[in-house]
């Protein structure tokens, strides 16, 4: 089992960020999805057996305070390019899940050369004909769990510790940070899809077979079509968050891709 995660407080071009790190090896940056900030779960632990894993919380999420300047998804992609610069990381393996996958894709179309590999886990972020993403902001907790998870027990990993004002205020702040860049257009950037062809890094798409937010057909297939040479792997027992629902299998798929992609030089 890899070492415990350590918590770091960074300043990224004036934007404070809290980040968990663990493990040793090649550099791997993980961008979390909604509600996934500040957590070191079995998926990260497994990756940390092979990589030096960095999990920053997006501004406004978990331990990272809100940043007023972030108004568009591309602001978040630039923020993570700034983070790579601040940490003097020339190239990394980049992994993003759901909303984090959207940010990762935006970053990849800007600076694919900074990526040794790219893994997108059930990303959102592109408009797919024939599909409208279900509106999570209008859902209560049972509806959310039913939409995001195939195995509802996996949702316990993200459950809040309590219902105190502090916890609820944090959830409101996270929702606000998410809504600011994703309310309308909802969960996509109209400009992103055409740009995906710019991605040259070896790319893996991990998809839950039962994703009800961004289903394999048509969403996963659209991504696979747009990113040159991308490999699509389907996880049979997962919904929208296979890295929570089948953590080991997804982590192993990431490891395999990274090994195939080679070093960071």
């Amino acid at each position: 089992m890899a070492a415990e995660a350590a918590r770091h407080d960074l300043d990224v071009r004036g934007t404070p960020v809290q980040m968990l790190t663990g493990g040793a090896g090649s550099e791997l940056l993980f961008l979390h999805g909604a509600g996934g900030g500040g957590r070191w779960l079995p998926f990260q632990a497994r990756l940390a057996e092979r990589f030096h894993v960095r999990c920053p919380s997006h501004p406004g999420h978990a331990g990272s305070p809100a940043a007023e300047w972030i108004e568009h998804i591309s602001d978040l992609a630039f923020h993570y390019l700034d983070l790579l610069d601040a940490l003097k990381l020339e190239r990394v393996h980049l992994v993003g899940a759901s909303f984090g996958g959207w940010i990762a894709a935006e970053l990849a179309v800007m600076a694919s050369s900074r990526l040794a590999s790219l893994t997108l886990i059930d990303p959102v972020g592109i408009k797919v004909e024939g599909w409208i993403y279900p509106f999570l902001f209008g859902m209560d907790i049972p509806e959310l769990v039913g939409t995001v998870f195939h195995n509802p027990m996996a949702a316990l990993a993200l459950a809040p510790p309590d219902q105190s004002p502090d916890t609820l205020a944090l959830q409101y702040r996270q929702g606000t940070a998410l809504a600011r860049v994703s309310w309308n257009p909802y969960l996509y950037d109209p400009l992103l899809r055409r740009r995906l062809a710019r991605i040259t890094a070896p790319t893996l798409l991990c998809w839950g077979a039962h994703d009800r937010l961004a289903p394999l057909d048509p969403c996963g297939q659209a991504w696979a079509k747009e990113i040159p040479g991308a490999r699509l792997r389907v996880f049979a027992d997962s919904g929208h968050v296979p890295h929570l629902e089948e953590a080991e299998a997804v982590a192993d798929a990431v490891i395999e891709l990274c090994e195939r992609a080679g070093g960071l030089a």
Binding site: F137, A169, T176
Partner: peptide
């Protein structure tokens, strides 16, 4: 009202939300 419709994210400031939650 369906509860999420009462509280769209960012409609209230963080200070107002805190006051309301307390």
């Amino acid at each position: 009202m369906h509860p999420p419709f009462w509280r769209p994210p960012g409609y209230m400031t963080e200070a107002s939300v805190r006051k309301m939650l307390e």
